[in-house]
Design a protein around this nucleic acid. Structure first.
Lengths: 170, 170
DNA sequence: GTATAAACGTTTAGGCTTGAAATACTTTTC
DNA sequence: GAAAAGTATTTCAAGCCTAAACGTTTATAC
């Protein structure tokens, strides 16, 4: 209490509203996510992380290094190892050695994996469309534009002139 | 393939746009979430789930049954058990037996836990405000309204007259 | 009054997630 | 060409998460 000066970017006016928006965003996202998760489980016996990995791989038919994959998905390196291992067990992904560099491997979808993914992707698109069906085309478009203002990519805050905000964590 | 009639609520026109919006929503949420998670870790040595639990408890000074808690947070029953156990170890939460019903327990914040939470909540609000600082008050308000159209609460889809969508998973 | 059902919380098995440490290989440097 | 530095991946410990299986305890039915 006692009015921390120059701490809030917007002079503690929008603070509550931003919080409200964030909570709403979070609730909505979690709701949709858990719906998708459950449907993936029931209808394809798979998980959202697996789906995400397969989606990334499907965008790169020549395969990706584990490295690149974890960067694309913005998850930790060690995390991807486990997911890929299970996908390999299921026969949907294969690891291929890279010539000239025995440290790295390239991972890519098998033919079966590609087919499986296409089916899942189709269902996934329908589900999302259904879950967002209460938004008109206009509203969807509008919202998409508003989101463009928000930070989606990692990296330091847009900028901070003399931000004494919460300083110094070395 | 072959035009599945009456499958897409909006006649497969908005489908791609809905998908686009969903992906953006997801990216933004994850970005903010991971930022908050990291700050909570660095500055308070805690986690987002712990914070969420403490927030829920702080709204109920008289405590909640494990039951009610997991419902409020919309997470599984067993999940809450572990989080509460760790919070109890840290001295921020206590379990109190309920008279007349030896099945249930009431959990509530200790005095220390309440104080700790207030500090975290204050920082949390600042962080969110900062992360959303690129949205004007108007935009924030507008967005909040658009979200009202979206399904945030669990439950069956808004309605589905003769939805043959993906039917029957008993 | 006892059998049965319902409610409550924990435990368990399996998977996701991170950050840190370990391992294995490659390139650079001297 | 051996040591050092760097790169790519895996392993590990700890925590989060779910669905399902389990014990208790309480309520309901007969």
């Amino acid at each position: 209490m006692s009015e921390p000066a120059s701490i809030t970017p917007n002079r503690h006016l929008t603070s509550k509203e931003h919080l409200r928006l964030w909570l709403r965003l979070l609730r909505t996202t979690r709701r949709v996510e858990s719906e998708l998760r459950e449907r993936l489980r029931l209808q394809f016996n798979t998980t959202l992380p697996r789906f995400d990995v397969m989606a990334a791989l499907s965008r790169h038919p020549d395969g990706l290094k584990m490295n690149e994959l974890s960067q694309q998905l913005k998850v930790s390196n060690g995390n991807v190892t486990g997911i890929i291992s299970r996908l390999v067990e299921d026969g949907w992904v294969e690891r291929i050695a890279i010539e000239g560099d025995r440290r790295a491997t390239r991972v890519l979808l098998t033919r079966a994996g590609t087919e499986q993914f296409h089916q899942m992707a189709q269902a996934h698109e329908h589900w999302v469309d259904e879950l967002f069906s209460s938004l008109s085309s206009q509203e969807t478009h509008h919202m998409n534009e508003l989101f463009a203002h928000l930070p989606t990519e990692a990296g330091p805050e847009p900028d901070s002139p003399e931000s004494t905000t919460q300083g110094d964590t070395p």
